[in-house]
Amino acid sequence: MNFNQFGIVFALLGAAAAALLAGMGSAKGVGMAGEAGAGIVTEDPAKFGKVLILQLLPGTQGIYGLLIAFITLSQIGVLGGDSNISLAKGMLYFIACLPMAVVGYSSAIRQARASVASMGILAKKPEAFGKSIIFPAMVETYAILALLISMLAVNGVTGINI
């Protein structure tokens, strides 16, 4: 058996994990924030626009996961080109995707909790909306850092000749 044939399997697994876990986190997060948002809008429909922004914040991780998955797929030749990569390189792609997959999932849920809490501020002090958005936005930092690392790593792995 030629183990190098499994290189593409691990590489694809990494791309799938990035899209899957970050997407799951975002789906759960947007759902949580949506539930709380619906409660606010039921009582005060005028707050819909502001509630929507808070609800959308945990949705970005899913987009980042998609981006990493897309870059990985294009680098490993699944979308066209040469898909013949070694086992070691395939595993490197897999590892490169992990920051986005894991941090994406975790940060989306944490950000959703912060968004839900910020909706309480919106309900009571709508004038403090600007401040309330900062709290969930802070969590975004770590999703962006993970995106950056995964992106650099995937591109870097492509240049490694193993």
Binding site: G39, I40, A123
Partner: peptide
């Protein structure tokens, strides 16, 4: 923990009154 998100959000608004 997440079962009452909608309910708590409505209560948050009700607390204003």
């Amino acid at each position: 923990d997440n079962q009452y998100l909608y309910a708590v959000a409505r209560i948050r608004t009700k607390e204003n009154s």
